[in-house]
């Protein structure tokens, strides 16, 4: 009886020490959570989540101060990716933060632009090129479609438009969707 208790205690101690040693010695220096969350965010820097950019939002999520369903540009797929990083069940996008929509791009109506540079200052990725008193233009490759330049414009010359599809960016529809939506087109009478 006593020997059994003694043996078990000894074993527990030995393994406990071993585990403790291993946890110190073989600690895996994983990516900090905020980095991994930031890597999943779309980097639109739109602020719809209520934070000034994607990185602050990622940091807030990592601290547990923000919910992970507040990023409309990332959409449901983005929420699922965030949930996977956080190890929790996905949930739908919080409608308070906006709705998911197709990728957008800002277009400056150069007939109207007065060159006030307000949008230049608003752009989080410096994607607007222009100077004072001279009309501005959006570098379409750099624009994230965040829409932050729309509000500051005093003459409302900036609009968000869906990114046009090209042969290179066109995507085949899922057969699951097209099977439901598309009936065989009726053949016109010859």
């Amino acid at each position: 009886m006593l020997s059994a208790v003694f043996a078990l205690t000894l074993l527990a101690l030995t393994f406990g020490l071993l585990l403790g040693f291993a946890s110190v010695q073989f600690r895996v220096e994983g990516d900090p959570l905020a980095d991994r969350l930031d890597a999943v965010l779309p980097q639109t820097q739109c602020g719809q989540c209520g934070f000034p950019g994607c990185r602050p939002y990622a940091e807030a999520m990592a601290r547990g101060e923000a919910d992970f369903n507040r990023c409309p540009p990332g959409g449901q797929a983005g929420i699922e990716a965030l949930a996977a990083v956080l190890g929790v069940e996905p949930k739908p996008l919080d409608p308070e933060n906006g709705v998911e929509q197709a990728a957008m791009i800002a277009i400056v109506d150069e007939n109207v632009c007065i060159g006030c540079t307000l949008c230049l200052q608003a752009c989080p990725v410096d994607a607007i090129l222009g100077s004072a008193k001279h009309m501005h233009t959006v570098i379409s490759q750099e624009c994230t479609g965040c829409g932050l330049c729309v509000a500051p414009c005093p003459v409302d010359c900036i609009t968000l438009q869906p990114v046009p599809a090209t042969l290179a960016t066109w995507k085949w529809p899922s057969p699951l969707i097209s099977a439901n939506a598309q009936q065989e087109p009726a053949r016109a009478a010859a």
């Binding site: 930031d38 779309p42 820097q45 950019g53 994230t144 085949w172 899922s174």
Partner: peptide, 28 residues
């Protein structure tokens, strides 16, 4: 075949988006 084409173009699009996000992050 349509499923495969769909998957391929989706993967390409995701890669483009990822690239764009990287670029936007750097610029920001």
């Amino acid at each position: 075949v349509q499923y495969y084409r769909f998957a391929k173009t989706e993967i390409w699009a995701a890669e483009r988006e990822k690239k764009k996000a990287e670029q936007a992050r750097a610029r920001h």
